[in-house]
Design a protein around this nucleic acid. Structure first.
Lengths: 115, 115
DNA sequence: TATAATACGGACAAATTTATCCGTACTTGA
DNA sequence: TCAAGTACGGATAAATTTGTCCGTATTATA
């Protein structure tokens, strides 16, 4: 596993948010799970651009950061389901308003963000 | 300059937000400038953990993304001031509510985020 | 009996971001 | 004249994140 060399900085609340939500696919993951797509294979199908390996890593971080909880059913074939914790739920309004900002300004932003 | 190999993904509004705000010091920069600390050297003093070189880069991106505008005074010694654009201003309430989420959950998050 | 589906993980490579070290130019004040 | 302040940028190294390629195990279905 990778070992950090420099400490995370969390001096302000927004940094805390970023620390938790940074990661190429985390937003998608949280959003999917909020929308009841909660099994790893389903998430993978829903977000085909991400590789399984990376989704796995980001899911693990979200669990570690207290945003998601993971339930493993002891069945064969294996079954796993993620769900939002209370902390994760509290993120939903933030995500919504932030996403709204993006959509409200999409036209302008798309011009500016170099692809 | 660095040339991207894979396209940015901006399928949802939150990705647009992240695209604009990702960057280790961008939040600090926007917040400082909102609070009237707008000259490069002052920003540097206010955020001493960041190197000048990196702040410069992030300021440039914020300008390119339409969040900041840069005014260069034609004087000696040189004087430069950044300020929020209208788009940048529209980010302030988002930043505030997001920071509030972080502060409201700081105790819990600090335990979870591995330093 | 192969194939696909379920889920997970190690080792390593590629991409990206952040930091370091160099140098430019001009001016004011000691 | 020398140090310090103002602002900027190239080249490259280090840190970090993301992606690729391998392999494990079990079960149901064709």
């Amino acid at each position: 596993m990778y070992e950090r060399k420099t400490p995370v900085n969390i001096d302000c609340g927004l940094h805390l948010f970023m620390e938790v939500m940074n990661g190429k696919w985390k937003i998608n993951l949280v959003w999917c799970i909020y929308n009841e797509i909660k099994r790893p294979s389903d998430l993978q199908r829903k977000i085909p651009n991400a590789t399984r390996r990376v989704l796995e890593g980001q899911l693990k971080q979200l669990v570690n950061h207290g945003i998601l909880s993971k339930k493993t059913y002891d069945v064969k074939p294996p079954k796993v389901e993620y769900s939002l914790t209370e902390l994760g739920e509290s993120l939903i309004p933030i995500i919504k308003s932030t996403a709204k900002w993006g959509e409200d300004n999409r036209e302008e932003l798309e011009k500016l963000i170099v692809k």
